[in-house]
Structures are given as C-alpha cells and as structure tokens.
C-alpha cells in the first residue's frame, strides 16, 4: 500500500466539508474522486498532500512519495519550457527531463519561453513536471482543465505508464479520462453533516 487514508475529515475556511473519508491505494492503482463543485475535492487533495492539517483521521504514505499538482501549474513565464522542467528536476533531485518532454510532446516547444505557450500547452508542461519528480503517488487536482482531446489521451497514457511502473494516482476530475482500470470514489456520501458541532469551532456554536 502506498497511500492509506482513514476516517479523514477536512475543513475549508474553518468549516468541515468532508468527514469519514477512507480509501487506500496500492501500487499500480488509480483512484478518481468525483463529486459536485464545492464538495471539498481540492481541500481533500491539499490535506492528503500535507498542505493543510486534517480535522480528524490520518493520511499515511511513505515519506517523500507524494507529488501534488493543483489548479495552478507554477510555471515561470520568463523561463523556457526546458528551464522550467530542469528546475523541478533539480528540486526533486532527479536529472533527466527527456522522458517528460517526450511523454507530453513538448519537444518542439522546449526552447520557447513558457509565457508564450497556450493554456493547454502550459497545462501539458505542468503535468510533465510530475514525470520529472520521480515520485510514486500523484495527487492531481483537475489535471485535464484546458486540455484538448488529444492531450487528454496523452495524459491518460502518461498515467497508465506511471501505473504500469508501479506508481499510483489520486485524481479529482469530472471528465472521463478513458482510464477504464481506475476505481471511482464518489465523495457525496462523505459530505460533513452541517449540524455536527464537535468541530473545532464547536465551542463557538
């Protein structure tokens, strides 16, 4: 098991949004999170990634095994595609960016400043970052925003290759990625009961 989430409750802006979420990921598995807007997908993923503390429950993963990609890609407009990827490769202590460039077909764009890319191309660059990190568990928040159909297929291929290599992925998305092997977890049943007053604002209610 590479990631195990048990009985997790998360809060956005001090208000509990999800509670009792449990799931586990084994190597080679992908889990797709579904749910209407505002249910707390982003909050859950940020909690799993360690950016914010959980209200209750636990997230267990091997140290330094997660990589997170959010709504923003963290791309520097004045650096070229290559320089952007090289930076993350050095931060994560991996050297080679050629596989990432190939997987997302960035070769022809490699020397171009990232500021001159289209929205979809930027997203591809942001996703290519996942490959250079060398991390086992991908935690992705709406990875397919602004991607066209070909690019979505490209992304699905990259995820599949990652799973085949023993990786795992936790993806929040509302479109069909064409990943038939992925399990789907609907978050709607875990919506936090609004009247539960035992949260940390409880004493104020």
């Amino acid at each position: 098991m590479v990631l195990s989430v048990s009985d997790l409750s998360v809060a956005r802006g001090g208000i509990p949004v999800l509670e009792g979420v449990s799931f586990a990921l084994n190597p080679g598995e992908a889990l797709v999170l579904r749910g209407p807007n505002g249910i707390g997908k982003t909050t859950l993923l940020r909690t799993v990634a360690g950016l914010q503390p959980a209200l209750a429950g636990s997230v267990e993963a091997a140290p330094e095994s997660l990589v997170y990609a959010g709504h923003a890609d963290g791309i520097k407009a004045t650096l070229s595609v290559e320089e952007n990827l090289n930076f993350w490769a050095r931060v994560f202590g991996t050297g080679d960016i050629s596989a990432a460039i190939a997987a997302f077909d960035l070769g022809p764009l490699a020397a171009r400043p990232a500021g001159a890319l289209s929205a979809g191309q930027k997203r591809r660059l942001g996703l290519a970052r996942l490959l250079v990190t060398g991390r086992a568990v991908w935690v992705l928040d709406e990875p397919t925003v602004s991607l066209d159909r070909d690019a979505v297929a490209m992304f699905a291929g990259a995820v599949r290759a990652h799973l085949a290599a023993g990786g795992a992925a936790l993806i929040a998305t509302h479109i069909d990625l064409g990943l038939s092997e992925a399990r789907i977890l609907d978050l709607a049943p875990f919506r936090a009961a609004p009247l539960a007053a035992d949260d940390f604002d409880g004493a104020f209610l």
Binding site: I15, P194, F204, L205
Partner: peptide, 17 residues
Amino acid sequence: EIRARRMRALLARERMQ
C-alpha cells in the same frame, strides 16, 4: 470578539445549509 467569532461561525453554517 468571542461573540463576533460565534456569529461568523453561525453565518458560515447557515451558508453551508
């Protein structure tokens, strides 16, 4: 401050419902 905080918490709960 406690009452203002309580009010914000109640309003937030209202919005949730």
